[in-house]
């Protein structure tokens, strides 16, 4: 199980740099970051090596923070890799509300992060489908 930290930010200069600096100062390593931009505000989703500490640090800095369980799937970094997974989820009627990814250092594998509506069912299905999901520890030690 992976944990994503979501931060509410106003759309004004310097918000991302402020967040990144706070995490950097606390030796937290950012694995992936995406922004859902709603115009006047946005939600920043962050995957780090230490989600508990990330949430605590940002909360102490005065941000509104939310935690969410997300699915982190390891996949081959090759054309069609994402298609395989999303087709499988589609066949099983799992709705993806957000998806993003990052490539692992070795370069041959990528991690796909999925926000889904029904986490428990999705997690089970994905495992049954033979995909490799990352645990919290695995994410930490990447």
């Amino acid at each position: 199980m992976a944990s994503q930290v979501t931060v509410f930010v106003e759309n004004k200069p310097g918000r991302i740099s402020k967040i990144a600096r706070k995490l950097g100062d606390e030796s937290i390593n950012i694995r992936a970051i995406t922004i859902s931009d709603m115009g006047e505000y946005g939600l920043i989703n962050i995957i780090t090596n230490d989600p508990d500490k990330t949430a605590a640090v940002l909360s102490e800095s005065g941000f509104s923070v939310s935690r969410k369980q997300v699915i982190a799937i390891v996949m081959e970094d090759r054309p069609g890799g994402l298609a395989d997974i999303s087709e499988y989820l589609h066949r099983n009627a799992i709705n993806i509300s957000n998806a993003y990814g990052f490539i692992l250092e070795q370069g041959d594998k990528a991690v796909l992060i999925l926000e889904v509506d029904d986490y428990a069912r999705a997690e089970k299905l994905i495992r049954k489908g033979g995909f490799h999901t990352l645990t919290r520890d695995e994410l930490h030690n990447l």
Partner: peptide
């Protein structure tokens, strides 16, 4: 203000 108590990371909720 989107204070911590009302923030659940959900855009649909905020909208």
């Amino acid at each position: 203000e989107v204070v911590q108590e009302i923030f659940h990371g959900d855009i649909r909720e905020l909208e």
